[in-house]
Nucleic acid binder design. Structure first.
Lengths: 194, 194
DNA sequence: TTCATATTGGAACAAACAGTCAATAATAGA
DNA sequence: TCTATTATTGACTGTTTGTTCCAATATGAA
């Protein structure tokens, strides 16, 4: 009954996410987007609404994917201590181009703050998921003796999430991987029994 | 031999810094700036060059001030442990409006990354100053028994700077002061002898 | 007072911006 | 094959952007 789209919606959305991720919201023009997405202007507006709606969808896609990835890592087989090390050392292991992009969620915090409630709610929901998975892992770590018996698990979970954010910022600022590893090791060390 | 400026340069620069701090570089228009600074368009260009030069000078002013403030705090009289507590708890003590603005340095990292070398060099210089003052304080803390004897002072300094960045981000994202205090206390705790 | 120079506000600039419109092209059901 | 409906294309809208030009104004030195 109708003509079919010539492009793949998800693929175009991925391209948009990458542009927003690398450049942020304001500095990204519709022109940048249509070029990267490989579609026409009108197709963009018909399919995604407007620039803000597209950004929101791209951010949702980013957080959903990256949180799912992080949670999969947190719930993997293996000792909690090793898993924590993997999580904390992940940033330092990324290639330079990936480190230069930082975290799209952190970027959106700096760009929008609490000003945009839709953007804020996307982040809040996913932050809570990470918090929970992290708490589970820490609880398991304490139980099996990997971590300090007197560890305040809730505080530690918040603190680790804070450190992960800090690592992303330091990384984007150009900190060398060796420094990132040093921070990761130190943080890890403070959780363990001594 | 000539006419005098009708405005105070430093005062105008403060106003510009506040606008850039709150909104970031791209979303801030020259119109926003002249309104906040209370000067004419041409005066802005004659006095500060262009938008980018003005931003750079505003960022320099911000980092110089805030780093000087932080270093003064780090080098105050009193026990290292208490000083560290003050530094880490500072963010949670700020009024909501101040927390919503975040750190202009962190904001600039997220907005520019390593792309703008002038911006990057402003941050690098000041980051090194904080690192040094932090290291001195930690060394003193270890010497006087406030902190763990086996503390890796350099790693701890990097880690604390990372945490401070993370706190700024969490704060701007809307984390309640109680959570920020929890993170600060946990971090502090991990530095102390147990 | 007069000259030379700085500052100022407003008008003007081209370029870039987000978003729209209308004509054309493609498809699936009748 | 026709028709209804959607997709694509590129030109176009009005606005906002950063920056500059210009004439008017103010000032200190001669």
């Amino acid at each position: 009954m109708t003509r079919r789209k010539e492009f793949d919606r998800e693929q175009a959305l991925d391209a948009a996410r990458d542009v927003f991720w690398a450049q942020g919201y304001e500095p990204t023009s519709i022109e940048d987007l249509v070029r990267a997405m490989g579609i026409g202007r009108q197709s963009l507006y018909d399919t995604f609404g407007d620039k803000h709606a597209l950004y929101l969808e791209a951010l949702r896609r980013y957080t959903t994917n990256s949180v799912a990835e992080l949670i999969a890592l947190l719930r993997r087989e293996g000792s909690p201590k090793e898993t924590l090390a993997l999580v904390l050392l992940a940033e330092a292991a990324l290639p330079p181009e990936a480190r230069a992009m930082g975290c799209m969620g952190v970027n959106s915090i700096c760009e929008f703050g609490q000003g945009d409630s839709e953007v804020a709610s996307v982040r809040a929901a996913n932050g809570a998921l990470v918090e929970r998975a992290l708490t589970e892992l820490l609880t398991e770590g304490v139980a099996c003796g990997d971590l300090r018996a007197d560890l305040d698990v809730r505080a530690a979970a918040s603190s680790i999430q804070c450190t992960l954010g800090g690592l992303k910022v330091s990384s984007k600022a150009g900190a060398p991987p060796a420094l990132l590893r040093q921070i990761a090791s130190f943080t890890l060390d403070s959780l363990q029994a001594r």
